[in-house]
Amino acid sequence: MKRVSDLLVTRPPAFVLGAVLGLIVVAVLATLNQRLGVLGGYSAVVERLSGRAPSFGWRASFLLGVFGGSLLFSALAGGSTVGAGYGWLTRTFTGDWQVLVVGVLLLLGGVLIGYGAKAAGGCTSGNGICGTALGSPASFAATATFMATAIAVTFAIDSLIT
């Protein structure tokens, strides 16, 4: 077990991980004839719980799998690979109000992620990996846009906090 956790502490080569994710896109199509997209799982849960859909559907199951797979990883790796705190947010905002400030920023960021990805027809996985693999012009345009925006905003945040 020690050996497994040692292996999991280090990231696999990027091209190996990329090949695995690409093969999952192929496998979702080969088994379910569906397009992979994780945001769709959140949407399926919201739509079911708000009475907009009669069932959770396969996408909610896929999301449950993502949760379970991460849980399994954490167990085999002997702990979380997520750093302490929450990145730049908890390093920048400290003190008594940290939970409130960081919580509100994460909540607002989440709103932008949910609304934006829904409008764009997918998130990093749905557009960035699956839609582009399927050759969808909309996914190429969306991916270029969110990558450029995220990089620009990250640099802007970095210049403000350093």
Partner: peptide, 12 residues
């Protein structure tokens, strides 16, 4: 939508 998503991705 992608631009809005990109901002959320960068913040979180």
């Amino acid at each position: 939508g992608a631009a809005i998503f990109g901002v959320g991705w960068a913040v979180t």
